[in-house]
Amino acid sequence: MAELTVRADLGALASIAEFLAGALAGSGDDLVFAVQLAVDEACSNTILYGYPDGEAGTITVTCIVDDDAVRVTIADDGVPFDPLTAPPPLLDIPAEERPIGGLGVHFIRTVMDSVAYAREGERNVLSMEKRRPDSL
């Protein structure tokens, strides 16, 4: 198991990506990219909207890799927020009319095989799983 705790700051996103690249080394570029995207989108939401009163907290990313799957947990101490309640984006309407919101969660749902949210005490916990391609 690998674990990283960072301050909830946009500058930490690149560090989180590097952490995942290390934790998933040898798992294939596509899997690494997919997990990086899902975690980046989730952490971006937390950093941008999770601390409306100004004082940034911390985000802890945990990554467990076994033969079958990659399991990532993102825990933060921001305001209670379930990203999975966001409505799906409208992907087929013209560019001029498209709202941009909701895309991040759409990416998470698309690249991961399962996503679950829980509020545990004072923390939001987002658990995501992606099966490894050679385990299918």
Partner: peptide
């Protein structure tokens, strides 16, 4: 090397 929905938002704003 990497783009997220934030990057797409910037490109979409420019396109619009």
């Amino acid at each position: 090397d990497y783009i997220s929905s934030s990057g797409l938002r910037v490109l979409l704003a420019a396109l619009k």
